[in-house]
Simulated scan of single mutants.
Amino acid sequence: MPNGQSPAIEDYLKTVYAHTEWQPDPITPSVLAGRLGVAPSSVTEMVKKMAAQGLVTHVPYGAVRLTDDGRLRALAVVRRHRLIETWLVREMGYAWDEVHDEAEVLEHAVSDRLLEAIDARLGRPSHDPHGDPIPAADGSIQREPFRLLADAPVGHLGRVIRISDRDPAILRALDEAGIGPGVAIRVSDTSADALIVRAGADPAPLRLDRAVSEAIWLTA
C-alpha cells in the first residue's frame, strides 16, 4: 500500500478530515460509523488503534480529531482520491457523477510514482471535477472563503466553488441545469424547502430544493 498505511485507516483518516473541511464541527464516533457503514464497536476499536499511532485524539463518547500527523496522512489520501477523480474525467471519459466509487478503490493502490505521473500529465490541477481543492504533495491546501448556498441570503451573488459528490443524482441534476464549479449564482428568493436562483447568463429563475442547495458552496 502507498506509505504502508492500511486501507481501513486511510478511509478513517479521509472521512474525519472531510467532515470538517467545509464546516467547523468535529466528527463524532456515531457519525463516523454512519459515514463508513460500520458498527459503532468497530469505530471504537479503530479509533483506539489510530490514537495509539498518534493519528487522532479522542475521549470516550467525544469527538474524534486529527493530530498534525493524522492530518498530513489524511491529506495524502485526499490528494490521491481527487487526482484520480480528475484523471478519470479528463482522460478516461467518466462523468463527474461516476468517479467517486472508482477513486475509492484506486486511491489505495496507486503508488507515489504513478500519482506523480498522473499529476504531471494533467498539468498539476488545483481542483477536482467537483471543485474540491487538490492538496499539494507537501500537504498544503488552499481554499477560498466560502458560503453554503443553503445559508446564503437573498441577493447573495457568488461563484460555485464546490459541489458535494455524495449524491450522484444531485450531480446529474445540476449538470442538466448547467450548474457546476465556476458558474455564478444569485439567490433571488428562499423558502423553507427551496431556493430560487439565477445561474450563469440564463436570466430564468431556477428552483433548487433544500437538499440540492446544501450540496453547493459559493464564494463568500
Rank of each mutant, 00 (worst) to 15 (best):
E214P: 03
W87K: 07
A184N: 14
A173D: 10
V197Y: 02
L72S: 12
E98A: 11
G200E: 01
R147M: 09
G158H: 05
T67L: 03
N3V: 13
K48Y: 14
W96Y: 09
I9A: 15
A109W: 12
S188Q: 15
H81W: 06
P133R: 08
W96V: 08
R82M: 09
A52C: 08
S188M: 15
W22F: 08
E102C: 12
P2A: 06
D128T: 06
N3D: 15
A51G: 06
A76G: 10
L171H: 03
D165E: 12
V197Q: 02
V64A: 00
L174P: 00
P40C: 07
P205S: 08
H81Y: 06
T44N: 14
P203D: 10
V197K: 02
A95C: 14
Q5V: 10
R79S: 05
D165Q: 10
W87P: 06
R172A: 07
A18D: 13
S140C: 06
D101M: 13
R207Q: 05
I9S: 13
A74I: 01
G155I: 03
V89L: 04
M50I: 00
G178H: 02
Q53I: 07
E85C: 05
G178M: 00
P145C: 02
V64F: 00
P181Y: 04
R147L: 11
A109M: 13
A95K: 15
R113N: 12
S111L: 11
V64Q: 00
S42M: 12
A63I: 02
D193F: 14
G182L: 07
Y17D: 00
V56K: 00
S191V: 07
E116L: 13
L148V: 06
H100Q: 14
L75E: 03
P24G: 06
S6P: 05
L157E: 15
L174S: 00
R162A: 05
L32V: 00
I170T: 00
T86C: 08
D138R: 07
E214V: 05
D189P: 09
S140M: 06
S42G: 12
A76E: 04
R198N: 09
L195M: 15
Y12K: 01
A192S: 14
L72M: 15
A173Q: 10
S191K: 06
S213W: 00
K49D: 10
A117M: 10
L157Q: 15
E104C: 09
V212R: 01
H19E: 13
E85L: 03
E176N: 10
H130R: 15
K49M: 12
V105R: 12
I118L: 08
G62M: 02
G182Y: 04
H19I: 08
L171D: 02
A211H: 11
A51E: 04
L72W: 09
T67G: 03
Q53R: 13
E116R: 15
Y12G: 00
E144H: 12
P181D: 04
S213A: 11
A204M: 12
Y17A: 02
D101L: 14
I185E: 02
S6L: 12
H108D: 09
T57R: 04
D193A: 14
R198W: 12
E176G: 11
L106F: 09
D202K: 08
W22Y: 09
S41K: 14
V64I: 01
